[in-house]
Design a protein around this nucleic acid. Structure first.
Lengths: 209, 209
DNA sequence: CTAACGTTTGTCCAACCGGTCAAAATTTTG
DNA sequence: CAAAATTTTGACCGGTTGGACAAACGTTAG
């Protein structure tokens, strides 16, 4: 797809990292169209033309950012493994996703922004790599169901519900904090969420008979 | 906050509705900064200056849209009532929210966009009206838990999980459809989702002993 | 009919924005 | 050190955007 990776000097590597870090901050807060090169340049501590020396177009920054994001973003799902106890596997998948929402909220929001706008830049990846990965894992989950290890349901929607509930704490963070208020909405909210989600996915809400 | 509502001619009422409808389409697809007055004007079938005759600033359109949105958006939660069987109440709340995601995806995306950008325009409402409403309903749910009608958990995070799982089908629609593929991702996906969510919130994933 | 009022349009503007370019400053290399 | 290569900067450009405005057009009531 791309030619061989261009050689880069030490300065180029450092400055490119600096720009990507600044761009993550700006893009995740304002979206692609809502962000200006000037904003990113200022956040990175350099002038606009200087930034454009490292990335020729605004889109190049976004593209690079998105490519890096996707690998780390899908890592937890890739780790979902056939070995080990199914219920434990699912529980640690949920925990890992929630930790990502806590530790990398900007990445989550960048992704959410892209999807919300119709995923114009990563549609091929959704229909290709992501679809294949989910199919693979859905098969694993189906195996667990056939073996009677977990209840029978739709594996795809199960995965969606894990994505939705965990990423909610990154993407809708301001709302979560506003609704919980200063006391409940402090740092402890992720542990509360983890406890709740564990129970939800394990037992649901029906009272113990 | 605002003076008495200005008198409006018949034409003004109609045209304002037309503009709001067009703006919902454009804003929900491109975000606030990503949308131009020209786009909205074209979608509404009028010229930019003409549109600006009805709404003096771009922000006014967005603000009006947001105010209207919030009422209908919170209606399902307001309906969550103490009368009736708790488990049934929760199930129909989930169903109503999922129906809103299906029937009003643009409203959902508009709201998601606003929250993602840090809710600059509706923060007071989140900390006021919304927080109060959720507190009220959390108390109702706590009552159910005390009465042994549903399992004991955190009512706040329960509400978040319902929001997250249902709105996911509007906000991340492109991703859902891409991952499900043409066959599974058709119109039936909302029924599949409803079935899955009902089971999840009722029984969780633990296999029936 | 006509005056008053409401609506629509074309033109214009200043600010912003993505990106170019050549020259200056700096760093690297021989 | 000095030449070569790299990095930084200021000035600039064309296109877009939000919004202003006055003139033209349409509608309605006396």
């Amino acid at each position: 797809m791309e030619g061989s990776a261009p050689r880069r000097t030490r300065i180029q590597q450092e400055k490119r990292e600096l720009i990507l870090e600044a761009a993550l901050e700006v893009f995740s807060a304002n979206g692609f169209r809502g962000s200006t090169i000037d904003q990113i340049a200022e956040a990175a501590g350099m002038s606009k033309p200087n930034l454009l020396y490292y990335f020729r177009r605004k889109e190049d920054i976004h593209e690079t950012l998105m490519q890096r994001l996707l690998d780390t973003w899908l890592a937890p799902l890739r780790e979902l493994d056939d070995i080990g106890d199914p219920m434990t596997e699912l529980r640690s998948y949920i925990r890992r996703k929630l930790e990502m929402a806590r530790d990398f909220p900007r990445e989550s929001r960048l992704f959410a922004n892209e999807i919300l706008q119709g995923a114009p830049r990563i549609m091929p990846m959704l229909e290709g790599e992501l679809k294949t990965l989910v199919e693979e894992k859905a098969a694993v989950i189906k195996g667990w169901m056939r073996a009677g290890k977990i209840a029978r349901t739709d594996p795809w929607h199960l995965i969606f519900s894990i994505w939705a509930t965990t990423q909610h704490y990154a993407d809708f963070d301001v709302q979560v904090r506003a609704v919980l208020g200063p006391d409940r909405g402090g740092d402890g909210r992720f542990e509360d969420a983890a406890r709740f989600l564990e129970q939800l996915f394990l037992d649901g809400l029906k009272p113990k008979a």
